[in-house]
Structure formats: structure tokens, C-alpha cells
Amino acid sequence: MDSLDDPNRVWPTGLTIKESEALHRHVIDGARVFFAISLFAHILVYIYSPWLK
């Protein structure tokens, strides 16, 4: 695939680079939320039933 540098090029999706960046940001934000939740959930599980003890 060509470089992602051309801002005006429309790709096979019909998306420009800016648009796919916006879509990608939602995916990344979702992943961050998932990470934060799992971290917090692990702390709670450790409080309830500690492992490696």
C-alpha cells in the first residue's frame, strides 16, 4: 500500500486519512477504557481473593 501522506486521497473504504484517523481514535479510546476497567477489576478481585499467596 502507498504511503498515508496524501491528505486528499480517498481510499477503497471511501475514507480520507483524516476520516480514518477519527475512526481509529474511537477504537483506541475504547481500548483505553477496556484497559482501565480491567485494571480496576483486577485490584478488586485481589482484595476479595488474593493470588500468589
Binding site: P12, T13, G14, I17
Partner: peptide, 18 residues
């Protein structure tokens, strides 16, 4: 990693996008 993910987005067919 984001660069690679972006390539995947822009290479997909419209059928796979929301």
C-alpha cells in the same frame, strides 16, 4: 502499531465499516 492499524482501516471495503 497505530500506523499499521490505520492502513488496515483505509484498506477495508465499505461493507466492513460502521
Amino acid at each position: 502499531i497505530s500506523q499499521r492499524a490505520m492502513r488496515a482501516w483505509v484498506g477495508l471495503g465499505p461493507r466492513f465499516l460502521p
